[in-house]
Structures are given as structure tokens and as C-alpha cells.
Computed example of a mutant assay.
Amino acid sequence: MRTVLMLAAVVALTGGLTACGTESGSSLPSTTTQHSATYASPAPSTGQPSSAPGAGSPGAGSPGTGSPDAGSPGAGSPGAGSPDTQAPDTPKPTAVPAPSKDGFTPVDANKYQLDGGHYFRSPSGNIYCGILTQAPYGVGCQLASTNYISPKLPNCTDAPDRKVAAHLYQGKSELLCTSQGIFVGIPQDGSPAGGVVLNYAESLTVNGYTCSSSSQGVRCVSGGHGFAISADDQHTF
């Protein structure tokens, strides 16, 4: 009897161990299946870099957010903007002195400075003038030759030592005869006597004296007083 009971106990114990092994074995495959599902299947939530069109690469991002194709054509590139709104560079015109109200163009006085004064000659070379800083001061002109001699100069001739001249100083103008080149500048470089040519329709102003050159002669004024001189006429005002 005891032997039968012990055999039954052994059989019962063996069956219990088998049940525990089966439960334990079934749980392991289940766990393995869960881990396999976790790592083997694709994870959509972490697959954005593969689905996005190359984040950080050229063309990435939406239009208008910094991509080369964003916005208007050529935006941000050299030469961007409408070329029709940019005026082409053009050389600046050379500055030309504006004519004065009497129609004469002022000249640069420095070009005429010579030997303590400012000297010029007419384009014809017959009238020599000087605006002086030394005695007799003022401004004066003299003729190389003349066709007419004012009645105010009865002692003047066309001789080298009796040349017709005119002078203006401190509001007083006068005609006179000169025996030397008082108003003739003598360049030191061998240039023609008389200084630089004052062309027709040009005027020179120095120390309040203004001389204007025209085909009718030279006219010098200061404070409303002056003279006009040419081979055909000499008068004061």
C-alpha cells in the first residue's frame, strides 16, 4: 500500500514539473515575439529623415525659406534686381565755367599770373594788358599799332616810343601815351611777350578789375568806371 502511495506521489510530482516547464517555455516565446515585434518592424515615428527630401541639402525646405529656387528668380544672387531700374554708368562731363550775365566766360586767373601781376594779350596780338600789383597799379592796356588815335592824345603817334594806352586806377580812367611796355608782361621762359591769350568771349577778374576780350577790342571796368581800347577806337567811361 505504501509503495502504491509513493508511486502516485512521484507521478503527481512529475506532472507538476512538466506543467511548470510548459508555462515557462510558453512565456519565453511570447517574450521573444514581443522583442521581435519591437525591433524588427519599421518605426514610422523615427523615419522622418528618410521620408524628408534631404534636410539640409540644396533645395531643402519650403519655397521662400532660403533655398536657391525660393522667391523670385535670382533672389539673393549677384545681379539680383531689375536691370531696367539701374542707370548705366556714364562719364561725368567736364566742368565748364558758366558764362557771366554779360555773356563772357570767366577764366582761371592763376593762368595769367606773371612777374608780380596778371598779364594777357588779345587773340590778334595787337593789344597787351596787365592788372598790376605794383605802380602804376590798377589795370592798363596798350596797342602795338593803331588805325585811329583819340583826339584826347594829340601827342601820341604809332611810333615805338609813343604808343596809345589806357589806364584805370581807383575809379579814375584815362588815355595816355607810353614809351615802354608798362602793361606788357615779359615771360621768363621765352614765350611771346604779353602773357597768355585771353580769347574772345572770355573775361579775367583780379583785385576787383574785370577785363573782357571780344573781336571789338578789350574792355576793362571796376566799380562802373573803365575804358575800351582797340586799333579803331579808344575811350573812357
Results as ranks from 00 to 15, higher is better:
residue 139 V to W: 05
residue 162 R to G: 09
residue 182 I to Y: 01
residue 42 P to G: 01
residue 58 P to T: 00
residue 38 T to M: 13
residue 75 A to Y: 04
residue 74 G to D: 01
residue 121 R to M: 07
residue 172 K to V: 08
residue 8 A to G: 11
residue 214 S to M: 05
residue 161 D to I: 07
residue 92 K to A: 14
residue 138 G to R: 02
residue 176 L to N: 06
residue 196 V to I: 10
residue 69 D to K: 11
residue 194 G to E: 05
residue 35 H to P: 09
residue 112 Y to Q: 04
residue 85 T to P: 05
residue 74 G to W: 08
residue 55 A to M: 13
residue 167 H to A: 02
residue 162 R to V: 02
residue 200 Y to C: 07
residue 18 T to E: 13
residue 137 Y to I: 02
residue 52 A to W: 08
residue 195 G to M: 07
residue 125 G to N: 04
residue 126 N to A: 06
residue 226 G to L: 02
residue 198 L to T: 00
residue 185 G to L: 03
residue 186 I to M: 12
residue 216 Q to T: 15
residue 230 S to E: 06
residue 173 S to R: 00
residue 37 A to M: 11
residue 211 C to G: 03
residue 211 C to F: 01
residue 26 S to R: 15
residue 13 L to C: 08
residue 177 C to S: 08
residue 31 T to N: 12
residue 23 E to G: 13
residue 78 P to A: 14
residue 36 S to Q: 14
residue 194 G to Q: 02
residue 47 G to H: 07
residue 190 G to V: 04
residue 113 Q to N: 13
residue 190 G to C: 02
residue 19 A to S: 09
residue 90 T to M: 07
residue 45 S to Y: 08
residue 93 P to C: 06
residue 34 Q to H: 12
residue 234 Q to V: 06
residue 175 L to M: 07
residue 119 Y to H: 12
residue 76 G to A: 04
residue 25 G to I: 08
residue 57 S to F: 09
residue 2 R to D: 13
residue 107 V to T: 02
residue 143 L to S: 01
residue 226 G to S: 04
residue 14 T to Q: 11
residue 75 A to H: 07
residue 82 S to Q: 13
residue 177 C to I: 01
residue 217 G to W: 00
residue 97 P to W: 02
residue 106 P to I: 02
residue 134 Q to V: 09
residue 119 Y to D: 10
residue 172 K to W: 05
residue 41 S to G: 06
residue 153 L to R: 03
residue 23 E to K: 14
residue 192 P to I: 04
residue 225 H to A: 15
residue 221 V to L: 13
residue 87 A to Y: 04
residue 18 T to S: 14
residue 113 Q to G: 13
residue 146 T to G: 07
residue 212 S to H: 09
residue 87 A to G: 10
residue 90 T to L: 08
residue 226 G to I: 03
residue 200 Y to A: 10
residue 226 G to Y: 05
residue 75 A to P: 01
residue 39 Y to C: 01
residue 72 S to H: 10
residue 215 S to E: 10
residue 96 V to F: 00
residue 43 A to N: 15
residue 115 D to A: 09
residue 57 S to M: 14
residue 138 G to P: 06
residue 200 Y to D: 15
